[in-house]
């Protein structure tokens, strides 16, 4: 089987940020993403659950430079005022060429 070395980026955020973050992902070179609802507790405590609606867990598989751009963008734009956590992890992906945009 043909496996490609890529990076999975995971971002867990307040529900109001979903559209903004996913728009950014695509703009930074991701070719797609998955969003699922998430529950949990963090340093911001109940503040994260304040707005009606659930936190979201956004995931995307991208090349290393795109992953770094996405994380930098999330850090610059959202970390100061919102409940957001983001990380990346190397992974091996089947059909990996699908996840790399031509210009990335």
């Amino acid at each position: 089987m043909d496996l490609h070395e890529l990076y999975v980026v995971t971002i867990i955020a307040e529900p109001v940020l979903e559209d903004h973050i996913t728009r950014d992902l695509l703009a930074q070179g991701a070719t797609g993403f998955t969003v699922i609802e998430a529950r949990g507790k963090g340093t911001r405590g109940i503040r994260t659950g304040d707005i009606p609606g659930q936190n979201v867990r956004i995931e995307t598989v991208v090349s290393k430079p795109v992953a770094e751009r996405i994380l930098k963008r999330v850090q610059d734009k959202w970390f100061a005022s919102y409940a957001v956590i983001a990380w990346t992890h190397p992974t091996k992906v089947v059909r990996g060429d699908k996840y790399v945009a031509d210009d990335a």
């Binding site: 109001v16 304040d50 707005i51 919102y82």
Partner: peptide
Amino acid sequence: PPAVRMTLPEANP
């Protein structure tokens, strides 16, 4: 609530 959260994130919801 969501409008305030997006525009004035400094405010405590």
